[in-house]
Amino acid sequence: ATNIVGKVKWYNSTKNFGFIEQDNGGKDVFVHKSAVDAAGLHSLEEGQDVIFDLEEKQGKAYAVNLRIK
């Protein structure tokens, strides 16, 4: 899925991951530091509006192509 809109539920910059809540009511999506770095960001803030693509690997969904809304 592409261009999914959501809000950062939480992001832990020490542990380098967090979760994004989808605006469409879907399951929360894992986001890793690598996606944050690829977006040219240092971190994510709770409540921040983002747009992302959804990829699945080994049955787990995660956010890629992250951008600030």
Rank of each mutant, 00 (worst) to 15 (best):
Y62K: 12
G47N: 09
I20F: 06
L66W: 00
G26E: 13
S43Y: 15
I20M: 04
K15M: 10
V29G: 01
V29E: 01
N24L: 07
Q48L: 13
E55I: 12
G6F: 01
Q58W: 15
N24F: 14
V50L: 11
A63K: 00
F17D: 01
K69H: 09
V5L: 09
N12Y: 08
G47H: 14
A1L: 12
K60A: 07
N24V: 12
V36D: 01
Y11D: 01
V64Q: 09
N16V: 02
A63G: 09
L54G: 02
I4S: 07
D53M: 03
E21W: 14
E21G: 15
G40F: 06
V64H: 09
T14F: 13
E56H: 15
N3L: 05
L66M: 06
I20G: 00
V64G: 06
F30Y: 07
G25N: 10
Q58V: 09
K9I: 08
A38F: 07
V8N: 01
G26C: 05
K33I: 06
K57Y: 14
K57I: 11
N65E: 06
D49C: 05
G47R: 14
V36P: 01
I51N: 07
I4M: 14
A63N: 00
D49V: 15
K57M: 11
V29P: 01
R67W: 08
V31L: 12
Q58L: 13
Q58F: 13
K57D: 10
E45L: 12
F30L: 05
I20Q: 00
G18T: 01
E45F: 15
A35I: 08
T2P: 10
V64S: 10
N24M: 09
F52A: 03
N12H: 12
G40Q: 09
D28P: 07
V36W: 03
I68V: 09
L66G: 00
G47F: 06
S13L: 09
G25K: 12
D53P: 00
S13Y: 12
A35V: 12
T14W: 10
V36I: 09
D53C: 03
Q22M: 14
S13M: 09
K27M: 08
Q58D: 12
I4V: 11
I51K: 14
E56D: 10
F19N: 01
A63P: 02
Q48F: 07
K7N: 05
E56M: 12
I4G: 05
K15I: 12
G18N: 01
D23S: 15
F17N: 02
I20L: 10
S43T: 14
K15P: 01
G40C: 05
K57E: 10
D23W: 15
N3H: 08
L44G: 01
I20K: 00
Y11C: 02
N65S: 07
V5D: 07
V64R: 09
V5M: 10
F52Q: 00
S43D: 13
D28F: 06
V5G: 06
V36R: 02
F17P: 00
A39N: 05
G59K: 08
K15D: 05
V36K: 04
V36Q: 02
L54E: 06
G25T: 14
S43V: 13
V8D: 00
N16W: 08
S34Y: 10
E21C: 05
D53G: 03
G18P: 00
K33N: 05
D53I: 03
D28E: 08
K33D: 02
V31H: 00
N65T: 05
N3K: 06
V64A: 09
K7W: 13
Y62W: 12
G26M: 15
V5A: 11
K27T: 10
A39P: 02
E21T: 15
G59L: 13
V50W: 02
Y62E: 13
Y62D: 03
H32D: 05
Y62F: 11
K7D: 01
I51P: 00
G6W: 01
A39Q: 05
G47L: 05
S34G: 11
K60Q: 10
K7I: 06
I51C: 04
V36A: 05
G6I: 01
V36G: 02
F52E: 00
V31M: 06
E45H: 15
L41R: 09
A38R: 13
A35W: 04
V64M: 09
E55R: 10
V64K: 13
L41H: 10
L44D: 01
D37Y: 13
W10T: 04
N16H: 15
L66A: 01
L54N: 06
Y62H: 10
E46D: 10
V8W: 03
A63L: 03
E45C: 06
F52N: 00
A1F: 09
W10A: 03
A39M: 10
E56Y: 13
T14P: 08
D53L: 03
G25L: 10
V5C: 04
A39E: 03
V29D: 01
N3G: 09
L41E: 13
V64F: 11
G59M: 10
W10F: 09
E46H: 15
H32F: 05
F30D: 01
F30N: 01
E55K: 09
A35K: 06
A61T: 14
K33L: 05
N12V: 08
W10N: 03
G6D: 00
E21K: 15
Q22S: 12
T14R: 10
D28T: 05
A38Q: 10
V29H: 06
G26F: 10
F30T: 02
V8H: 00
L44T: 01
L44F: 07
D49W: 15
K60P: 04
I20H: 00
F17H: 08
F30G: 02
V31N: 00
Q48H: 06
S34C: 04
V31E: 00
A38V: 10
T2V: 11
E55M: 10
A1R: 06
K60H: 14
S34T: 13
A38K: 11
V5F: 13
G18R: 00
D28N: 08
H32G: 08
N65H: 11
N12T: 07
L66P: 02
A63W: 00
F17A: 02
I68P: 13
A38P: 03
T14C: 05
H42L: 11
G6M: 01
G25R: 11
K33Y: 08
K60Y: 10
N12R: 13
K33G: 14
V29M: 04
T2F: 14
G26A: 13
G25P: 07
K69P: 03
A61H: 11
G6A: 04
D53S: 04
E46M: 15
A35C: 04
F19S: 02
Q22R: 15
L66K: 00
S13D: 12
G40A: 07
V64E: 08
D49G: 15
H32N: 06
A39L: 07
G40S: 09
K9N: 03
V50R: 00
A61Q: 12
N24T: 12
K57S: 09
F19W: 13
F52K: 00
K57F: 13
G6L: 01
I51A: 07
D37T: 14
I4W: 06
D28M: 09
H32Y: 07
R67M: 10
E55F: 09
I68E: 15
D53W: 04
H42W: 09
A61R: 08
A1S: 11
L66N: 00
Q48T: 13
E45G: 12
L54M: 11
K9V: 05
K15N: 07
